[in-house]
Design a protein around this nucleic acid. Structure first.
Lengths: 138, 138
DNA sequence: ATCCTACAATGGACAATGTCTAAGTCAAGT
DNA sequence: ACTTGACTTAGACATTGTCCATTGTAGGAT
């Protein structure tokens, strides 16, 4: 994760305790925290950090392309630090657990011109839904 | 749309003016209204209808499988009455316009077992993003 | 090492969306 | 037409996110 911090500093990002803590919280595979969860974990490391700062920092990380916004559920946006490799998501319909997945093929190629309505299509987001092993046995 | 009303009545749905109005508002192709938009249009036909009733009715229509919940943007859920035929969505990244699309192939088949993490995968939702003709020329 | 200044953080008000509840109303069967 | 249980209502409340004026501070300049 010091990679991320180094990269950010290299881009002229002013380094502060708050930003460092937020970046540290967002580390790992299959991490998809809501803004509030990020805030809660950040508070554990730096009690005086404010909600607004967490929102601001998350927004900046997204603009910089270091973190991806994921909207798998209707409630809160989630933040996915695994931005360096394209991937999609598999979500448990009952408990909400999320895994990163890498399907074969390119869904963009599956959209014929006749179905593009004149749009310039540049991106595709795929969300698989089902039941995780835990919820299946329960 | 009287089809829908008949089907609902057949399922033991109690028919009320409010439910009829909500069902009428949700009619057509490429219709993807937010709950608030549904409420606004319902009020035009039945001024005393309440917000809670619109939310309740939308939730019931979703449970009954007559309407699909779509979360293409991070703000509000949208309601898509085109539930009889599976389809996906194409969204303009700037103005938010939404079109129903029917890509070739089956994305479910593109997810290898090794990428399923023991989940029972039952559904997939694909959102294409790009710029619509209007926003492109602007 | 200290000072400056632009940028960042704070916290609290505000906004948007959605949920819940208690009380009143009504559709549909008898 | 009555009765009853389901439906509707209005508004309070909850959650998520944004905005702004004020205060604080990182990092370059001296």
């Amino acid at each position: 994760m010091s990679d991320l911090l180094e990269r950010l500093r290299g881009r002229g990002w002013r380094m502060t305790a708050q930003r460092r803590v937020v970046a540290e919280v967002l580390d790992g595979e299959h991490v998809h925290l809501t803004a509030d969860e990020v805030h809660a974990r950040a508070v554990a490391k730096l009690p005086e950090i404010s909600r607004a700062t967490v929102y601001n920092t998350l927004g900046e990380l997204v603009s910089l392309g270091e973190v991806i916004e994921v909207t798998t559920d209707k409630r809160a946006k989630r933040y996915d630090p695994n931005a360096h490799r394209p991937h999609h998501h598999l979500v448990c319909a009952r408990c909400g657990a999320i895994r990163d997945v890498h399907p074969r093929g390119n869904p963009l190629a599956d959209l014929p011109d006749s179905e593009r309505f004149g749009f310039t299509v540049s991106d595709v987001e795929v969300t698989y839904r089902g039941l995780c092993p835990n919820c299946m046995s329960a």
